[in-house]
Design a protein around this nucleic acid. Structure first.
Lengths: 140, 140
DNA sequence: ATTAGTGCAAACACTTTGCACGGGT
DNA sequence: ACCCGTGCAAAGTGTTTGCACTAAT
């Protein structure tokens, strides 16, 4: 009952199932911002009967409850990030890896400050900063 | 020969066709950042035989040549922006419209300054800032 | 004349859905 | 016992591709 996955799931009113806990654990351990498909195939090893439906459903519910982030940075597919502290992302066009960009010093004001809840009269709920290019490995 | 669409297409070594000129003109006149599908159906009126292949191919080539921008802000589909001057985008989760955000005063340093070509040793080619929430019409 | 571009249809990749069964509460 | 969650398969959506024909150079 003290496991963080159990607490997190109960917090948002979802039933605690081995599949959901496995998805959460994989997301936390895997820093590569995996896609739903990648998560599915990774979990097949430990949960041979897991299905796409479960993975997609769970990810959607976690994202809706804002327990994970859904990234639109990869043109081909949705990618997921368990990390909730404000940071941005770098996408390598060559290898497809996504790197966290923790240094957001180029943002003048923090996204979470109240003055940024409103831009041009629109109500802003989230700000994502996506950098793209070649990563340190691929640029060689 | 003096038409801007002709000049633009020749500049990037593409043949000048009525379809391509129509796509460029529609993008310039349409401030709504349309998707490929929207562009296709809009052009059907004036070019009854235009095909998806042509629209997708042309948009891909224009984006590759950096004559238009491909936006990843809409979770469902790619959206296109003819405007190349640096600006960011706001996506309304309710109505799906995309608004230009011209005021980038919240960026400490301009994306195009040399120091931002490199972050964490990665070579940065582009930075996109995506705001999401409810637009001024939908938040009522 | 040459060769890139077009249009059609089929194929693709990723995601979502309907439904019966099984497991969490 | 209730009903949410799972797994399967099928369907859906947006995009890409192969190919023969057409048109731009």
């Amino acid at each position: 009952m003290k496991d963080w996955t159990v607490i997190l799931l109960k917090e948002i009113g979802l039933r605690v199932t081995p599949q959901r806990r496995a998805i959460l654990e994989l997301l936390k351990e895997n820093g590569s911002h995996p896609s739903a498909e990648t998560i599915y195939f990774a979990l097949l090893k430990t949960h041979p009967s897991i299905s796409f439906a479960t993975v997609y459903n769970t990810l959607a519910k976690l994202a809706e409850a804002e327990k994970i982030q859904q990234l639109e940075i990869d043109p081909q597919r949705k990618r997921f990030d368990h990390c909730l502290t404000p940071h941005h992302h770098f996408y390598c066009k060559a290898c497809g890896r996504i790197f966290d960009v923790l240094d957001d010093s180029f943002l003048l004001k923090n996204v979470h400050e109240p003055e940024f809840k409103d831009v041009d009269d629109h109500q802003v709920d989230s700000i994502q900063v996506y950098l793209k290019g070649l990563c340190k490995d691929c640029k060689k």
